[in-house]
Simulated scan of single mutants.
Amino acid sequence: MTVETTYFLLTYDRRHGKLLGNRRFKDEAQASAVYAATEAHFRGNEAVEVVLVGADSEQTLRHTHGHYFGRQQPRGSASAAHFLAALA
């Protein structure tokens, strides 16, 4: 079974612990281009983090990167194992 990857561009305000943007893309090239432009826009602003993450669903993204959505993931949790199992 082939799982289609969705690319999520997250823009996160570290200072306020708030997600500023969550854009999704099906096309990897488009996601990479928008990521580069967003990264350039915030270059030098240490308070803003820009990340591009591929996942099979937003549910997986929220599980593996919950801190961007206001949920802390405890260290040593089963999230990595769950994520790898979802890929199998």
Rank of each mutant, 00 (worst) to 15 (best):
residue 1 M to G: 14
residue 1 M to R: 07
residue 2 T to H: 15
residue 2 T to Y: 14
residue 4 E to C: 01
residue 6 T to I: 11
residue 6 T to D: 03
residue 7 Y to Q: 03
residue 9 L to K: 01
residue 9 L to F: 04
residue 10 L to I: 09
residue 11 T to C: 10
residue 12 Y to V: 01
residue 13 D to W: 06
residue 14 R to N: 15
residue 14 R to H: 04
residue 15 R to H: 09
residue 16 H to D: 05
residue 16 H to V: 03
residue 17 G to P: 00
residue 18 K to H: 10
residue 20 L to N: 09
residue 20 L to D: 02
residue 21 G to M: 09
residue 21 G to H: 04
residue 23 R to S: 11
residue 23 R to V: 06
residue 23 R to N: 12
residue 24 R to C: 02
residue 25 F to E: 06
residue 25 F to W: 03
residue 26 K to F: 11
residue 26 K to N: 13
residue 26 K to V: 04
residue 26 K to W: 08
residue 26 K to I: 04
residue 27 D to N: 15
residue 27 D to I: 09
residue 29 A to K: 13
residue 29 A to T: 12
residue 30 Q to F: 03
residue 30 Q to A: 14
residue 33 A to N: 10
residue 33 A to Q: 11
residue 33 A to R: 13
residue 34 V to S: 02
residue 35 Y to M: 10
residue 36 A to D: 15
residue 36 A to Q: 14
residue 37 A to Q: 15
residue 37 A to V: 07
residue 37 A to C: 03
residue 37 A to E: 15
residue 38 T to Q: 11
residue 39 E to Y: 11
residue 40 A to H: 09
residue 40 A to S: 12
residue 41 H to G: 01
residue 41 H to V: 01
residue 41 H to Q: 13
residue 42 F to E: 07
residue 43 R to P: 00
residue 45 N to K: 14
residue 45 N to S: 07
residue 46 E to G: 06
residue 46 E to M: 09
residue 49 E to F: 01
residue 51 V to Q: 09
residue 51 V to H: 05
residue 52 L to P: 12
residue 53 V to E: 14
residue 55 A to E: 15
residue 56 D to F: 07
residue 57 S to R: 00
residue 57 S to V: 00
residue 58 E to Q: 11
residue 58 E to F: 01
residue 58 E to C: 02
residue 58 E to N: 06
residue 58 E to V: 01
residue 59 Q to R: 12
residue 60 T to E: 13
residue 61 L to M: 06
residue 61 L to G: 03
residue 62 R to L: 05
residue 63 H to C: 07
residue 64 T to I: 11
residue 65 H to V: 00
residue 65 H to E: 14
residue 67 H to K: 07
residue 67 H to M: 08
residue 67 H to T: 09
residue 68 Y to M: 03
residue 68 Y to A: 04
residue 69 F to N: 02
residue 70 G to M: 08
residue 70 G to R: 04
residue 70 G to H: 06
residue 72 Q to R: 06
residue 72 Q to H: 09
residue 73 Q to P: 06
residue 73 Q to M: 08
residue 74 P to E: 12
residue 74 P to C: 03
residue 75 R to I: 10
residue 75 R to L: 14
residue 76 G to Q: 07
residue 77 S to P: 00
residue 77 S to F: 03
residue 77 S to C: 04
residue 78 A to S: 12
residue 79 S to N: 09
residue 79 S to C: 07
residue 80 A to Q: 10
residue 81 A to T: 08
residue 81 A to C: 02
residue 81 A to Q: 09
residue 81 A to E: 14
residue 82 H to C: 02
residue 82 H to V: 10
residue 82 H to I: 07
residue 85 A to Q: 12
residue 85 A to V: 06
residue 85 A to P: 00
residue 86 A to V: 04
